[in-house]
Deep mutational scan, measured.
Amino acid sequence: MQIFVKTLTGKTITLEVEPSDTIENVKAKIQDKEGIPPDQQRLIFAGKQLEDGRTLSDYNIQKDSTLHLVLR
């Protein structure tokens, strides 16, 4: 499925993911596309910070959802 990741600069990254993918996995995909190390990434969805060990389906993230990427 496709999800979107919006950065603070207003750029939107499109990712191909599975509901069973972990947040860690998603961060690795963002690193592949953007070169941002996962340890600098914070992903936010519906006002919640997403934890590495959980999956997209744990957070009820569905296709065409938009996550927000904050760098630390």
Rank of each mutant, 00 (worst) to 15 (best):
G47R: 02
K29V: 13
L56R: 00
D39N: 12
S65A: 08
V17I: 06
I3A: 01
I36W: 13
E34F: 08
S20F: 10
T7A: 04
Q49F: 10
D39Q: 13
K63H: 15
K33W: 03
K6V: 15
L71W: 08
L69I: 04
N25Q: 15
G53D: 05
L43V: 09
N25K: 06
L43I: 12
M1V: 11
I3W: 00
S57Y: 13
R54A: 10
P37V: 12
K27M: 05
K48M: 15
V70E: 06
T9L: 12
L50H: 00
V5H: 00
I23Q: 03
R72K: 15
T7L: 15
Y59I: 03
I44F: 14
A46Y: 12
K29S: 08
I61M: 05
I36L: 10
A28T: 06
D32Q: 08
Q40R: 04
H68R: 02
L67V: 11
P37G: 09
P37R: 06
L71Q: 14
L15M: 15
V5A: 04
Q40W: 05
R54K: 13
I36F: 06
G53K: 09
K11W: 12
I13R: 02
D52N: 14
A46D: 03
R42G: 07
A46P: 01
I30S: 01
R72I: 10
I36P: 07
G10S: 07
H68K: 02
K63V: 05
L67E: 01
D52W: 03
K6I: 05
D58N: 05
D39K: 07
I44S: 08
D39I: 10
Q2E: 14
T55Y: 14
K33D: 06
K27T: 02
Q31Y: 12
Q62R: 07
L67M: 09
D58L: 05
V5P: 00
E34W: 10
L15P: 00
G53F: 13
E16V: 04
M1H: 15
L50W: 01
G10Q: 08
R54I: 07
T14P: 13
T9Q: 13
I13N: 02
K6W: 10
K63L: 04
T12G: 07
L43T: 01
D21Y: 06
Q40A: 12
P19F: 14
Y59S: 06
T22S: 07
V17M: 12
K11F: 14
K33S: 03
T66Y: 02
V26P: 00
E51A: 05
Q41T: 04
F4L: 08
Q40K: 10
Q31D: 09
I3G: 00
N60R: 05
I30T: 02
Y59H: 03
Q62L: 08
I44K: 09
K63Q: 07
R42M: 15
I44E: 12
D39M: 10
Y59N: 04
V70R: 02
R72N: 12
A46L: 07
I23S: 06
L67G: 01
V17E: 01
A46M: 02
I61P: 01
G35E: 07
Q2W: 06
G47A: 07
I44Q: 05
A28Y: 09
D52T: 12
V26S: 02
I13E: 02
K29P: 00
P19L: 09
E24L: 05
Q41V: 03
E18S: 15
T55D: 09
L50Y: 01
T9E: 12
G10F: 08
T66H: 15
T55S: 15
D58G: 11
F45H: 08
K48R: 13
T55I: 13
N60T: 08
T7K: 10
G53A: 08
E24P: 15
L50P: 01
K48A: 09
F45D: 02
Q2H: 14
Q49G: 13
D52F: 09
K29L: 11
S20E: 15
N25E: 12
L50F: 02
S57L: 12
L71E: 13
Y59Q: 02
Q40N: 08
E24G: 14
D52L: 08
F4V: 10
Q40G: 08
A46G: 14
L15A: 02
I30A: 02
I36H: 12
P19D: 06
I30E: 00
T12N: 06
K33F: 05
L15N: 00
Q41M: 06
E51L: 03
D58E: 07
T55M: 03
D58R: 03
T14H: 13
A46K: 14
V26R: 00
Q2K: 13
S57P: 07
K48L: 12
R54P: 15
P19R: 04
E18T: 12
I30M: 06
A46V: 14
L69M: 04
V26Y: 00
L50E: 00
L69V: 06
S65Y: 08
F45A: 08
M1G: 07
Q31W: 05
K6D: 13
V5R: 00
A28V: 12
T7H: 03
T12Y: 10
H68S: 05
R42A: 06
K29D: 12
P37K: 12
S57F: 10
E34G: 07
I3T: 01
I23L: 11
T12Q: 05
K29Q: 12
Q31F: 06
R42F: 13
I13W: 04
L67W: 01
T12E: 09
L71V: 06
V17Q: 09
S57E: 12
P38H: 15
V70N: 04
L56K: 00
V17P: 02
N60M: 09
S65W: 07
F4E: 05
S65G: 06
G10W: 09
D58S: 10
R42Q: 08
T22M: 03
N60K: 05
D39H: 13
N60Y: 11
A28D: 06
K63M: 15
F4A: 04
K11L: 12
T55Q: 08
P37E: 11
S20I: 11
L56V: 15
M1T: 10
P19W: 07
E34H: 05
L15D: 00
D64A: 10
K29G: 08
T14R: 04
P38E: 11
F45E: 02
L67P: 01
T22F: 07
D21N: 13
D64H: 05
M1S: 10
K33Q: 13
I61A: 02
Q41Y: 10
G35R: 08
T55E: 04
R54E: 10
T22G: 06
E51Q: 05
V5Y: 02
G35Q: 12
D64R: 05
G47N: 13
L8K: 14
G10H: 15
T7S: 12
F45L: 07
K27E: 01
E18F: 12
L15V: 04
R72P: 03
G35V: 03
D64N: 12
I36Q: 02
D32S: 08
K33A: 11
F45W: 15
Q49T: 07
Q41F: 08
V70Q: 04
V5E: 00
F4S: 14
P37A: 11
L56W: 01
E16N: 09
L56A: 03
V17F: 10
D64P: 02
S57Q: 14
K29T: 07
K11E: 08
L67Q: 01
E51Y: 03
A28R: 09
T22N: 09
L71Y: 07
Q62E: 14
S20M: 11
S57H: 06
T66F: 07
L56F: 04
P38V: 11
R42D: 15
P19A: 05
P37Y: 14
Q31I: 03
L71R: 06
K27D: 00
D32V: 11
I36A: 09
L69E: 01
G35A: 05
V70K: 03
N25F: 09
I13A: 03
E24Y: 15
Q40Y: 09
I36S: 04
M1W: 10
D64Y: 05
D39F: 13
D39P: 15
K63A: 13
L69T: 01
L71F: 10
K29F: 11
T55N: 10
G10E: 13
H68V: 02
R54T: 13
T12S: 13
I30K: 00
I61E: 00
K63Y: 06
G35H: 09
D39L: 13
I13H: 05
G10I: 03
E18M: 06
E24Q: 13
V70W: 03
T66R: 03
D21M: 05
F4K: 06
P38L: 06
A46N: 09
D64F: 05
Q31N: 12
Y59K: 01
G35K: 09
S20L: 08
H68M: 02
T7N: 08
Q49L: 15
E16Q: 11
I23D: 01
R72Q: 06
Q40T: 08
D52Y: 03
K48Q: 10
Q41S: 09
D21R: 05
P38A: 14
Q62G: 06
G47L: 09
L43P: 01
S20A: 10
K48I: 15
I13G: 02
L50G: 01
H68A: 02
F4P: 02
T66A: 09
Q2L: 13
A28S: 08
G10V: 04
L8G: 06
T7M: 12
R72H: 14
T22A: 12
V17A: 14
I3F: 02
F45R: 04
T12F: 09
T22E: 10
K27W: 06
H68N: 06
D39A: 04
L15H: 01
E18V: 08
I44H: 06
I3K: 00
K63R: 10
F4Y: 07
K63F: 14
I13D: 02
G53N: 08
T12W: 04
T9H: 09
D58M: 07
K11N: 05
P19H: 12
K6Q: 14
L15W: 01
E18D: 12
T55P: 08
L71G: 12
L50D: 00
N25M: 12
